[in-house]
Amino acid sequence: MEQQEDRFADPAYRAAVVDLLGTLAYGELSAFLRLSTDADLAPRLSAKAAVAALAATEYAHYDRLRARIVEIGADPEAAMAPFVEALDGFHERTKPSSWLEGLVKFYVGDGIASDFYREITTYLDPDTRDLVLGTLESDKRSSYVLQEVRQAISDDPIQGSRLALWARRLVGEALSQGQRVAADRDTFSTLLTGTSEHPGMGLAGIVSMFSRITEQHTRRMAEMGLKA
């Protein structure tokens, strides 16, 4: 506990954690709102219920993140505000036109974001790391999406080509957004590049990080039955 308190005594570290939790919180809130809307596109009642459950999970994550922001003495709305434009812009540019496109977007976007945040957790205090990793748990979400997409491609192989093109567009937008956020926010740069007291991954490490994220995306595409 003493070590954790020492980390938060550093204004730069505290600001970085507030930014990290702020962007995560708005991402979860945004996912909740969009999944709630996407449920209307579901072709079956069981599918509507499954997506509603996914939305509920996202909101629960948001609530935990919001509580942590308050716990460290910051305002949740102020913490989320710097990331609203970027995340809303991403969603505006990548509106799904079908139920399956919505599922692929959720799976691809969620996966890339989760990979990025997992990389950052290496440089966090234990409590914040555990909270962030807890919000990134996605086994149940991944299982449902994979089942739906694989079945759709099995029923209509042409869907596979269309969804692969859609996923490639999504990954380009998501990686560009992640790179912009990492570059625009000095706090993220501090976490990633490190300080004299708390070394980070450095600039070369950041390049390697985005390479690893791309490789993970390729793996997820294969799991869905899509070509990267």
Score class of each variant (00 low, 15 high):
Thr122Asp: 15
Ile158Cys: 00
Trp166Arg: 09
Leu146Cys: 02
Thr195Pro: 11
Gln177Met: 15
Arg185Met: 04
Thr190Asp: 06
Gly194Tyr: 04
Pro126Cys: 05
Val149Pro: 08
Leu191Arg: 01
Ile158Leu: 13
Thr187Cys: 02
Ser138Tyr: 10
Gly194Asn: 02
Val132Ser: 02
Gln147Phe: 12
Pro157Thr: 07
Asp127Tyr: 08
Tyr144Phe: 15
Ile153Val: 15
Ser154Ile: 12
Gln179Thr: 11
Leu170Gln: 04
Asp156Leu: 10
Ala174Thr: 09
Thr193Asn: 05
Thr122Glu: 14
Thr190Ser: 13
Glu148Asn: 04
Ser138Glu: 13
Phe188Pro: 01
Asp156His: 11
Ile158Phe: 05
Ser176Leu: 12
Ile158Gln: 10
Val171Met: 09
Ser154Gly: 08
Ile120Glu: 02
Thr190Trp: 11
Gln151Tyr: 08
Gly194Thr: 03
Gly160Ser: 13
Asp127Val: 15
Ala183Tyr: 00
Arg169Ser: 13
Ala183Leu: 07
Asp125Met: 09
Thr190Cys: 01
Val149Asn: 06
Thr195Asp: 03
Thr187Asp: 05
Ala152Asn: 09
Gly194Ser: 02
Ala152Val: 11
Gly172Met: 09
Leu124Ala: 09
Val132Thr: 05
Gln177Thr: 14
Ser138Met: 08
Leu124His: 09
Leu165Val: 12
Pro157Leu: 06
Thr122Met: 12
Tyr144Ser: 12
Thr121Arg: 05
Leu165Phe: 12
Gln147Asn: 13
Val149Ala: 10
Val171Leu: 01
Pro157Asn: 02
Ala164Leu: 01
Gln177Ser: 09
Gln159Asn: 15
Arg180Cys: 02
Ser143Phe: 08
Leu131Ser: 04
Leu175Ala: 02
Asp139Phe: 12
Thr121Asp: 08
Gly134Val: 10
Asp127Trp: 05
Gly172Trp: 06
Ser138Phe: 04
Gly178His: 07
Pro157Phe: 06
Glu137Ala: 15
Ala167Ile: 07
Arg185Gly: 00
Leu165His: 09
Gln151Trp: 07
Thr128Met: 03
Phe188Leu: 07
Asp125Asn: 11
Arg169Tyr: 11
Arg141Leu: 15
Asp184His: 03
Glu148Thr: 14
Ala182Leu: 14
Leu133Asn: 07
Thr190Ala: 13
Asp156Cys: 08
